[in-house]
Amino acid sequence: MKARVTVTLKSGILDPQGKAIEGALKSLGISGVASVRQGKVFDIEMEGGDPATAEAALKEAADKLLANTVIENYRVEIV
C-alpha cells in the first residue's frame, strides 16, 4: 500500500526558504506568484492491506518524527 505524508509549516511561522524561492520565482519573471511556503513530502510503502491501520501508524510516525508539531502540520493520505 502506498501512502503519502505531507508536512507543511504552520501559518504564522516565518519561512525564509519559502521567501527566497518566492524571490527567485519573481526574478525569473513567473507571473502571478503571491507567496511560497516550502514543505516536505514522504512517500511511504506500507505492509499489510488495512488502510485504517496504516493511517493510524503513519499518524504516529508523523507525531513522533516526521513533523515537529510545534511549527508544522501534517496530512496523511493512503494513495
Binding site: I13, L14, P16, Q17, A20, N68, V70, I71
Partner: peptide, 11 residues
C-alpha cells in the same frame, strides 16, 4: 526544552 531553532533569518 520548548521551541525550535529555525533557519537563520538571512539564510
Amino acid at each position: 526544552l520548548p521551541g525550535v531553532l529555525m533557519r537563520n533569518a538571512r539564510l
